[in-house]
Amino acid sequence: MTGKRRSQWIAGLFVLAVLTYLYAPIIVIVLFSFTTSPRLSMPIEGLTFDWYRSALDNPLILSALTNSLVLALISAVAAGIMGAAFSFGLMRLKRPHVREALIGASLLPAIVPLLVIGISLAVFFRVLGMPQGLINTAIGHLIVCLPFVVLTMNARLETFDFSMLEAARDLGATPVRTFLDITFPLIRPSVVGAALLAAALSLDEFVITWFNIGNQQSVPVLVWGMMRRGVDPSINAIATLLLTLLVGLVICSNLLGRKKRS
């Protein structure tokens, strides 16, 4: 009996250790974004919102935040629409092996190292004579996001009953009417969920952004620059803001996905 209890204790401790290992860095960052001490040191002397204030007062940080949000919005909308259209088209293909091959091809960029994509894009845009900036970066983000959008859309469309679309046509709806009345309302949660995921991926994308954004800043690029000059506690504040945003997006994305399945 005691032996059993002891082994349960050990198992519990192990789980706790793993969870600590996973979350400690994040917790530390969140914690220090609220502490008065400008240096990362223990014990905590007092709590403050000063770092958030100074972060949001800094024009560099504000413009980086704006850029990041613009990139996230473009990624969400563009990847959502393109991914949904692509997946929907795939599902209508009659030959299963062609569909499999196309899904595989569309997922490949997710395996290609970001460094390779980042550099190739930079070279490619230079050849085209496009100056580095937000547009190039947005195109890069789309490449990163699309495979994930296609993947989630595919998983959710697997259960989509296409005979519903035929039923609507049969009952007198034109193809446009069918899309508005049936297709769109039914896939909307999945598309929005996938778009939120795209936004989350775009928000913390660093490698491709760094190679293509030029002299502009996104939040990850800015933070990286600030880190090189020593640890500024407002970085903790920015990181915490970003974290909150990302967690929120991923949770919303998952909730929307779940609702569709039930």
């Binding site: 035929e166 039923a167 046509r169 009952l171 007198g172 009345d181």
Partner: peptide, 28 residues
Amino acid sequence: PERRPTNLVFQRGALFPHMNVYDNIAYS
């Protein structure tokens, strides 16, 4: 199909899941 005087009952019903029974029947 939308311009034919025929209607089809599908193998698995193909009811519209986001509409209730009334709206399904009233659709056409």
